[in-house]
Design a protein around this nucleic acid. Sequence first.
RNA 1: GGGCGGGUGGCCUAGUCUGGAUAUGGCGGCAGCCUCCUAAGCUGCAGGCCGGGGGUUCGAAUCCCCCCCCGCCCGCCA
Length: 570
Amino acid sequence: MDVLGHFEKHVRERLSKELVLLGYEGDLIMERPDHEMADFALPCFQFAKQLRKAPQVIAKELCSELTPDELISKVWEDRGYLNFRVNETMLGMMVVRDALDRHEDFGRGDARQGRVLLEHTSVNPTGPIHVGRARNPLIGDTLARCLRMCGHDVSTEYYVNDVGKQVVLLTWALAHLKESDVPVADRQKDDHRLVGYYQVANRMMESTPEVAADIAHMTQRFEAGDPEVISQVRKTVDMMLEGIRQSLSDINVTLDRYTYESQYILDGSARKVVDDLKASSYAEVDDGGYFLNLEEFGVHGRDTRFFFTRKDGTTLYTTRDLAYHMDKFGRADQLINILGEDQKLGQKQLASALKILGKDEAPECVFYSFVSLPEGRMSTRKGVVVYLDDLLDEAIERAFAEVCTRRPDLDDEHKRQIAREIGVGAVRYNIIRVQAEKQLIFKWEEALNFEGNSAPFVQYAHARCCSILRKTADYNREADLSVLSDPYERKLIWILAQFPEVVRQAGDKRRINMLPTYGHELASALNQFYGTVPVLRSEHQDARLCLVEAVRWALRNTLMTMGIAAPEEM
RNA sequence: GGGCGGGUGGCCUAGUCUGGAUAUGGCGGCAGCCUCCUAAGCUGCAGGCCGGGGGUUCGAAUCCCCCCCCGCCCGCCA
């Protein structure tokens, strides 16, 4: 158990014992008030009814029984609250020691049972990733890192949509359009080069019936299993996917596995899903197309009919997705999907269908709202987009300019390295820091924010720690930490001590936005300490160096779980 | 029409699950701080009927009901 958790458990145990003596049975709720107020607080209103006493009286009675001990330095009553101050010296010694002993494992939870399969990104390979969709890989990758930090065994997966009209259309475009037919791409990466073909072909399909018929014919050949078309489509998808993979890699996102949708047609598992569903009592037919009646699964109105075959008997996207989920359940104990909010109904229907197929668990979903532009929604098809690659380039370029003015002493390669780490960090941080359900409007000046609540702020605090540590050849890591009693030191220790708990909660609650919030808070406390309390050449130099190194590990580990580099100088 | 999610100072945002003591921070604004460990920093000031209305409660940003605004979804598409 983490150090602060140990303190809290101790307080709870002592409280429970006293409450039993007072005649109270039941749970007790403790709070973490503002640090200036107290460390732990017990609102005694919760006991008033059962004990038939005023909260103030209960608090006073508890207060007189709960004498300070090794872990608790102060207990006092205040308007019905019983407040606690922990023994800050003890907390400081224990938590700094923990960080200095465990380094990159500081904050890491004990190994947990079961394999987690986290599906994220899974964007259609029809164009480069735009910032509207970038929320998906960033939430997914950060959650994966966070869950691993919590002690889970996590593997990540991208479901590649290589079946259907969209990819056939793109394939058709590559075969029938000349380079001169499409606008010149801004960059030579295949995803950017190819998206122009996709956009032009979409317009042609809408305006000229012959093209639409041609593409429809190609789609039929594809679905009939024509090996030539299938291999052509696969080739196109792989080109596009390589570009997407590169973009993901540029923002520190790598996936453990790419699973192609076509696999489930080829291996017959989609067909098996159709057969199994047809055999169920929920299956009905309308004009040759089979659907499930989901009335009793709480899916009402027009959404009740959940089709799983076309009238010609071929499978649908949803059918393949069912086969994919059956496959995933065979490979993991727990499924998590990161999805856009437009997938909610589909996931509900999918969960019902899985139940019909005999699975009693449903995948857990994290939904996010879309990022839009001030002008409205982004669309790859219409070309109304800001691509992730462009945002990233801009961020890195601005960071580079900033590094050049601040650190002219560094060589060019080093400056570029730091600029990359800052640019990537800023982009990741700004998307991750807001709650997933909140709708975002993309604004360049916000996405490129390098001050205040931003990645560079946290990275800078880390670099400051490194800078101090770098200036001392060596120091006594066994120094007496009980001298750390300055208010800024105590505040810093208190926030440092929250780290393991923050990681745990961010993972368990799937609320990764707690990580940037915490990172900012810790960095801010470090900056305040830095500005007020001298470390080098001070009377408590070694103890303070221990604290700085402990904070450095916490900052580094916070940044790492967000997929953001922790530069040693900037 | 139905379903789901958001609404917190000028702008953005934490907290809502698990109700508690003066609602978290940032941006922007104003005023200060670099002979001292990197000023991507620090300090101070101004700015809030937590969308509106009812209810539950000793106590509501948080729970319940109604309403308003914004987003998303409601294809034999993917």
